[in-house]
Design a binder for these strands. Structure first.
Length: 421
RNA sequence: GUGGGUGUAGCUCAAUUGGUCAGAGUGCCGGGUUGUGGCCCCGGAGGUUGAGGGUUCAAGUCCCUUCACUCACCCCA
């Protein structure tokens, strides 16, 4: 029989790893809520058109990376490749702007993209996603970036680099884009095949190309930062000023291009040196026209996504505290086993983590089990003790052992265990 | 979609030029006091060496095919 494995690029998070995930999520929740961001939970499936419209028809994500399927009523559905579109959909659908002109949201969950897996890249991956609606001031850009950096630093991640850029708005970007195309057309033949394609699909991506020859060509190209309109240019310099005031060091990367069509003005990315080729830990930016483009009011927005697998990859090694059991009950013989079973559940009902071995094993093997479960105490009793109506309580650290009467054992032990903290 | 690397017990890995090579450590189970853990000692279970085919007297070891994993490109978190 052939064994069934998980789908390519889709991983299990095993019990040993989940404490790390909890820690990351908890830290995010605490910090974000402190900044006034509250959780929204959105579905992992949406109508395909939502993503087509928001991310952009000609992006790689929409063109070849989405998990799309036909529902029974013939409607096309897609497993979300990113969260922003869904959050905006919900924001519009529930009229969240009505109750508060500035809405700050975050959401955590799995995303799906059908790419070839590699280090730091999976077909199902998890993102922490933050969105801020209704504020177009440079201060909000800086707030969001500051929160992101604060979050990463709180987790103890070192060697971070923050890169920022401005992508212009719907006024200045098309002009710039056109002039880049003009420029590139001049030396089109010298570009790598990928870039020759990019000229027509996403010309700004040529800036990002790793091929040497393309690099030298693009070096002489016009730079977006020189061609920003007054509004965008002012906005960008104020963002930089705020970041400096916050003592956040950053680099301006005029070549940074985001892969999603909707970004405007400020774009940013956080990279880590510890990652591999996929070294981008988090990325985001402003998307001022997107809410209205998706059918909502003309509300500005800014947000970012953090790749959780990548983040966890560069987390400093933590002394993962081993799991602890409060009490192990070692029972010998069927009479004792029966009593122990009831006791175990009773302790658990009181919030004490109790454990026992249901198989009637030797005391030695039960002690080994108690040790493996890292139990603080072990309660030992067999027929002899039952007849004498008491049980032995062993402190697993000190090896001290004392006798407790069976009458009122539950209360007595509960007291002892609770007092221990 | 394209290219490179790797595939031996649950896990980490050994196995000289193809010739007792199917092993070790760890984990698991049991034993070393008749009812007491961590260290130590002993024993046991567990692999059709990813799968299929070929070369050979003989293949984990060579060749082909296939699958999986992995890294990189594309692209992104």
């Amino acid at each position: 029989m052939e064994k069934i494995t998980a789908i390519k690029g889709i991983k299990d998070i095993l019990p040993l790893d989940s404490p790390t995930w909890h820690k990351v999520e908890l830290t995010a929740r605490n910090i974000f809520e402190c900044f006034g961001f509250y959780e929204i939970r959105v579905p992992i499936m949406e109508k395909t058109t939502l993503f087509q419209r928001s991310i952009g028809e000609t992006t790689d994500i929409v063109e070849k990376e989405m998990y799309t399927f036909r529902d029974r009523n013939d409607e096309l559905l897609t497993l979300r490749p990113e969260a922003t579109a869904s959050v905006i959909r919900a924001y519009i659908e529930h009229n969240l702007m009505a109750s508060d002109p500035v809405t700050k949201l975050y959401t955590i969950g799995p995303m799906f993209r059908r790419e070839r897996p590699q280090k730091g890249r999976f077909r199902q991956f998890h993102q922490i996603d933050v969105e801020l609606f209704g504020d177009d001031t440079p201060a909000s850009d800086a707030e969001v970036i500051f929160m992101l950096m604060h979050f990463l630093q709180t987790l103890g991640i070192e060697k971070l680099s923050l890169e920022i850029n401005s992508l212009g708005c719907k006024v200045c970007r098309p002009v710039f884009s056109k002039s880049v195309v003009e420029y590139l057309k001049g030396s089109e033949d010298a570009l790598c095949p990928d870039c020759q394609r990019r000229i027509h699909t996403n010309p700004l991506r040529v800036f990002d190309c790793k091929v040497e020859s393309c690099n030298t060509i693009i070096a002489g190209a016009p730079r977006i930062l020189d061609d920003l309109c007054k509004d965008c240019s002012d906005h960008f310099s104020q963002v930089k000023e705020y970041l400096q005031d916050l003592k956040l060091s950053y680099e301006i990367n005029p070549r940074m291009v985001r892969g999603l069509d909707y970004y405007t003005k400020t774009a940013f990315e956080v990279k880590s040196g510890e990652l591999g080729a996929q070294n981008s830990l988090a990325g985001g930016g402003r998307y001022d026209g997107l809410v209205s483009f998706l059918g909502g009011p003309d509300v500005p927005g800014i947000g970012f996504g953090i790749g959780m697998e990548r983040l966890i990859d560069c987390l400093p090694p933590s002394d993962s505290s081993p799991r602890r059991t409060d009490l192990f009950i070692a029972a010998l013989g069927t009479r004792a086993q029966k009593i122990a079973f009831g006791l175990t559940q009773e302790f658990r009902r009181k919030g004490i983590s109790a454990a026992m071995d249901y198989a009637d094993r030797s005391l030695k093997s039960q002690m080994k089990r108690a040790d493996k479960l890292n139990s603080a105490f072990t309660l030992i009793f067999g027929d002899k003790e039952i007849d004498e109506s008491h049980a032995e309580l062993r402190d697993m650290n000190t090896k001290n052992q004392k006798s407790l009467p069976l009458d009122g054992l539950l209360e007595e032990l509960t007291n002892i265990l609770n007092k221990r903290e």
